[in-house]
Design a protein around this nucleic acid. Sequence first.
DNA 1: TAAGTTCGATTACGCTTGTAATCATTAACT
DNA 2: AGTTAATGATTACAAGCGTAATCGAACTTA
Lengths: 128, 128
Amino acid sequence: MKPQMSDISKAEFEVLESLWQQHPVAANEIILRLNETKPWHEKTVKTLLNRLVKKQAVSFVKEQRRYLYSPLFEREDYTNEASQSLIERMFSGRVSPLVAGFAKNKNLNKEDVEALKSLIDQWEQEHE
Amino acid sequence: MKPQMSDISKAEFEVLESLWQQHPVAANEIILRLNETKPWHEKTVKTLLNRLVKKQAVSFVKEQRRYLYSPLFEREDYTNEASQSLIERMFSGRVSPLVAGFAKNKNLNKEDVEALKSLIDQWEQEHE
DNA sequence: TAAGTTCGATTACGCTTGTAATCATTAACT
DNA sequence: AGTTAATGATTACAAGCGTAATCGAACTTA
């Protein structure tokens, strides 16, 4: 079975975030960096790291008695898969209803709209 | 505590889908309709209904010895909240990176793009 | 009226998740 | 060398989840 990115839990994802920012890195460092925003106990983070290793989402190399951890897939690949999965489950695979909800709830800003416009322009150029 | 839409599980969501299609409706009906697509045991569906009631996501009225169930919030409210939550966790609250991933993976089609364009047009009209 | 059927309510059970604590080993300090 | 500190491995434990089975009351049917 391939590393199924889909069954990464939310807490595990936060640990991955830290690894995507920088790696390879020791547990120690990860804990320090995570604790800037999350009040997680050292032991908790280590458990999460272990689970990520077991799920083949994270690898490590020994550096003396420490391990240096690295993510085994790209952030973008994970977030894209998660987005698609949600959009399939709730919007029949189409992204526009999601964006429509965003617009309705005032969660769009000028910047986002500009970004969307250039995505669309580009898409249209690529499709004849 | 308000009905927290956020802690509806995936299986529970499928039951809600059925209720959004039509309600109020008896467990019996729900089971039949769900079984068109999911191989779920009758008992399983009833457990899910019970959990949804406990989570205040679903209500019921007695009709003789049966219950007739109804959802307690709109599909759109739930899907919007779920979308936002994912987009906050993975894209800092901005929707365009999600759409960018979609574009990159060829998950956009003409229809979707047209829909996005009119959303944008509308947004721009509303924002001077 | 006794037996089967149909509901909802309650209980079950293994797996995952959040959140750690304990154990064992190794490195460092006294 | 003996003690302490750091680090990964193992174990813990309650809540949530998927997936049902069992219980008890009511309704139907023979």
